[in-house]
């Protein structure tokens, strides 16, 4: 990894952070409504893992999807406009925060029923296998989704059919307000579950963007070469509540403080500077350009038009 690679990883993580902070602010102002789940704290997971994918690979994710969308390079204008419910949004203002799509970038949603994205993702992998293409499908899910039947059905299906799919578990230790200790029957790591289906698994520090990137690359390469599915578990933490409606009373502030010490958006630029990979000024330049991009995105979303009423009945049947 050269200097540009490092700065690019930082740029994307900082962009997600600012995007999410802006979402929170605009939610408070009433410009964004509905359920809003922020990715703050988990930036290194999406950025590191998606950096290891190729354009031809499919991404399917859950409702906390802003980070993956930004890491995949969806336009921040289109994303913010979607959250503002505008016609210029990535899903024309019809999807909202939990249903972001960009088929040109093989970003296949944004799915808001916990675990429901997993069978769908297996279908993209099945299509690649059927066409004898070497694209890989990456499906993101949280620790909460591991208790859905769809998780187990899809792991079995993928293993039986040797599908080119990577199950990417973002373990942030809380399914909404319920900690993993309270719902995990074997009391051990999620990798045991993967082993039960004959699927190899790896655990990675989800606060370390380089570790996530390297681990994902290694796993994706194996899956791409036809070895069947694999599971990656990234341990991470959301610094804020489950959604904007959640004051997070179910956890101690000391736990949040411990995780904040590992904040990748703070620690990664420090590492870049202290390792003499790039200068403080270069980091500042990245920050400035990201701040400009976010200001432009909010301006674009604010100034865009709402969908016209005729669009209500469009896009339902082809």
């Amino acid at each position: 990894m050269n200097k540009e690679d490092h700065l690019d990883l930082y740029r994307k993580m900082y962009l997600i952070r600012l995007f999410e902070e802006s979402c929170g602010e605009n939610y408070s102002k009433g410009f964004i409504r509905g359920f809003l789940h922020l990715y703050i704290g988990q930036e290194a997971v999406a950025v590191g893992s998606i950096d290891s994918l190729e354009e031809k690979d499919y991404i399917v994710t859950h409702y906390r999807d802003h980070g993956h969308a930004i890491a995949r390079g969806l336009s921040t204008n289109g994303l913010m406009a979607e959250l503002f419910g505008k016609e210029t949004g990535v899903s024309k203002g019809k999807g909202g925060s939990m249903h972001l799509f960009d088929s040109e970038k093989n970003f296949m949603g944004g799915h808001a029923i916990v675990g429901a994205q997993m069978p769908l993702a297996a279908g993209f992998a099945l299509a690649s296998q059927y066409r004898k293409e070497d694209s890989v499908t990456m499906v993101y899910f949280g620790d909460g989704a591991t208790n859905q039947g769809t998780f187990h059905e899809t792991m079995n299906l993928a293993s039986v059919w040797k599908l080119p799919i990577v199950f990417f578990l973002e373990n942030n230790f809380y399914g909404m307000g319920t900690s993993v200790e309270r719902i995990r029957s074997n009391g051990k790591s999620f990798s045991n579950m993967a082993e039960g289906y004959g699927i190899p698994s790896t655990i990675v520090d989800g606060m370390d963007v380089i570790a996530v990137k390297e681990t994902t690359k290694e796993v994706v390469d194996k899956v791409r070469s036809g070895n069947g599915p694999a599971l990656i578990e990234a341990t991470t933490f959301r610094f804020q509540g489950h959604s904007m409606a959640d004051p997070a009373k179910y956890r101690e502030s000391s736990e949040v403080d411990e995780w904040r010490k590992k904040d990748p958006v703070e620690s990664f630029p420090e590492y870049i500077i202290s390792s003499n990979i790039a200068s403080k000024e270069e980091i500042e330049d990245v920050k400035k350009s990201v701040e400009d991009e976010m200001n432009a995105a909010v301006k674009f979303a604010t100034e865009s038009n709402e969908p016209d009423l005729e669009s209500l009945s469009k896009d339902v049947y082809l």
Partner: peptide, 15 residues
Amino acid sequence: AGFIGAGIGSAAAGL
């Protein structure tokens, strides 16, 4: 749920 969903995904991919 698994194979209906896989069907949907494969259709979304163009099959």
